[in-house]
Amino acid sequence: MAPLTILEIVLARFGVAVAMADPTLAAIVWEIRLPRVVAAGLVGAALALAGVLTQGLFRNPLAEPYILGMSGGAGFAVTAFLAFATPLHLNQAMSYLSWVGAFGGLITIAIVYALASRRGRVDPLTILLAGLAMSAILGALTTALLFMGDPHLTRLARVWSWMGGGVQVLGWGPIAAAVPPLGLGIVVALRQAAGLDALALGEESAAQLGIAIQRQRVEAIVGIALLAGAAVTLAGLIGFVGLVVPHIMRLIVGPRHLPLLIANAPAGAAFVVLADLAARTLLPPAEIPLSVITALVGGPWFLYLLRARRGFVGAIG
């Protein structure tokens, strides 16, 4: 399809241009293709910002909502919610699923945080391992819940493919529902910039610079949960975006958090839109799950960073 045709369809939709394209084509673009691209962009922006916040908060370049189990927590919360919602309530439930996901992420990170901290200090290696274990446990619980709550497996297939990670949204509904928590998450994220810079020097230095550490920590965690919750609700469990994109952007715009956060939103969006494009087009007519693409790019990246940063992780570990 020519780019001009797509532009024409979109403009016509907003009443800017006269509709000339084939109505079927217009419906495909407006109801299927465009929401998918927009959803991919939002998910990418949310995951990249959540990655920056997580790394800054835990002073750990390897931390990321997926790796720390927050995505798994959001997924479990959403699944549990759907499993116990009656079909009657299901349609209304859709509009606040993101908040449910954010809540699940929040509870998970609280547990992981408590597991990894000793006398107020968070061990960088322990938190990665605690997150990994929580991810595995929550994944298993999610699966178990699906079998328990749904003996006839009517919803299983759909939830299964959603948890597998991908932007298979239909229409604009899910996107509209995800925008409020996502917008709030972005605002919270931008407010953390100065505090996260100070925190790079350690808690003692940040405190002496006048940063209210406790409040900062709570705000940042809420921000991460909102962003990860919205992303998981839209696209399931997609890992490593919050690792790869912040790392690349740090090389380009530097480590200071205000420019870093601002740069990560469009970069994360572009990364996931492209990954989704690859997922759709690499093996036609089959569609590779988006999470497979991001894991194939991000997994090796994580391993490389783990090796390159081993000295650092060991040093304060």
């Binding site: 790394q55 002073r59 750990n60 370049p61 810079d197 790079a200 020097l201 350690g202 003692e204 230095s205 002496q208 610079l209 006048g210 740090r250 530097g254 480590p255 200071r256 650092f312 040093a315 304060i316």
Partner: peptide
């Protein structure tokens, strides 16, 4: 913090500031 500054012993910075 504008009039009282504390210089800690040493710090490790996880990013390339």
């Amino acid at each position: 913090a504008r009039s009282i500054a504390l210089v800690p012993q040493d710090v490790s910075v996880p990013f390339d500031y």
